[in-house]
C-alpha cells in the first residue's frame, strides 16, 4: 500500500512538473519519468501488457521523439504566459486532488463487482478477435493525427516553395 501511494505521488508530481517547467527538455524528461511511474503501477496491478507499452512507447519512443524535435528547434522570441494561468492551474490542481482523494477513497471501497471471466487467448487474440472495433478506431485516430500534421504544417512548405 505504501509503495503504491509513493508511486502515485511520483506520477502526480512528475506530471505536474511536466506542465510547470518552462524548459521544454526538462518538461519532456519529467513526462518520461511520470510514464515510468505509471508503467510500474501497471505492472504491480497485473497489467503487464499495458506496462510494457507505457514504458517502451510513452517513456521511451515518444521521449526520444520529443528530445529530437527540441534539439532541431532554434530559440526564438520567448512566449509570455498569462499571469492568471500561474495562479489558476495550481489552485485547480490542489482542489482536484482534494476532491479526487475524498471521492475515490470512499468510492473504491464500495464498488461492487460481478465475477468476470478472464479474457481467453493471448494479448494479440484478445485485441484482434474481441476488440476489433477498437483497432479500427485507433487507425482512425492515427489517421486524424497524420492528416492534422499535414494540414497544420502546410504553411511552412508553402513558404519554402516560394
Amino acid at each position: 500500500m505504501v509503495i503504491q501511494i509513493l508511486l502515485l505521488c511520483g506520477l502526480i508530481i512528475f506530471s505536474g512538473l511536466a506542465i510547470l517547467f518552462k524548459d521544454l527538455l526538462k518538461a519532456a524528461l519529467s513526462l518520461a519519468v511520470a510514464s515510468l511511474f505509471l508503467g510500474i503501477i501497471f505492472f504491480r496491478l497485473n497489467a503487464p501488457y499495458a506496462g510494457v507499452f507505457e514504458i517502451s512507447v510513452v517513456a521511451g519512443l515518444i521521449t526520444v521523439l520529443f528530445i529530437l524535435t527540441i534539439a532541431l528547434t532554434k530559440k526564438e522570441g520567448e512566449v509570455e504566459e498569462a499571469k492568471l494561468a500561474k495562479v489558476v492551474f495550481p489552485l485547480f490542481f490542489i482542489l482536484f486532488l482534494i476532491i479526487d482523494g475524498l471521492v475515490m477513497k470512499s468510492l473504491l471501497q464500495k464498488v461492487p463487482s460481478l465475477p468476470s471471466g478472464p479474457e481467453a487467448g493471448t494479448f494479440g487474440e484478445v485485441l484482434w478477435k474481441q476488440r476489433t472495433f477498437d483497432l479500427v478506431a485507433q487507425i482512425g485516430v492515427i489517421f486524424a493525427g497524420v492528416l492534422a500534421v499535414l494540414a497544420l504544417f502546410r504553411k511552412k512548405e508553402d513558404d519554402k516553395d516560394e
Binding site: 476488440r131 472495433f133 477498437d134 479500427v136 478506431a137 485507433q138 482512425g140 485516430v141 489517421f143 486524424a144 493525427g145 492528416l147 492534422a148 494540414a151 497544420l152 502546410r154 504553411k155
Partner: peptide, 30 residues
C-alpha cells in the same frame, strides 16, 4: 462510428477520432 458501436470503450475511441480531426480543423486557418 460513435453512433454505431454498441460498446462503451469503442464510443470513447471514436469520440477521439472525431475530436482529433476537429482540433486540426479549428486551427486550419493557422
Amino acid at each position: 462510428g460513435l453512433v454505431l458501436v454498441p460498446d462503451l470503450f469503442s464510443i470513447y475511441l471514436f469520440l477521439e477520432v472525431a475530436a482529433v480531426a476537429s482540433y486540426a480543423l479549428v486551427a486550419f486557418g493557422l
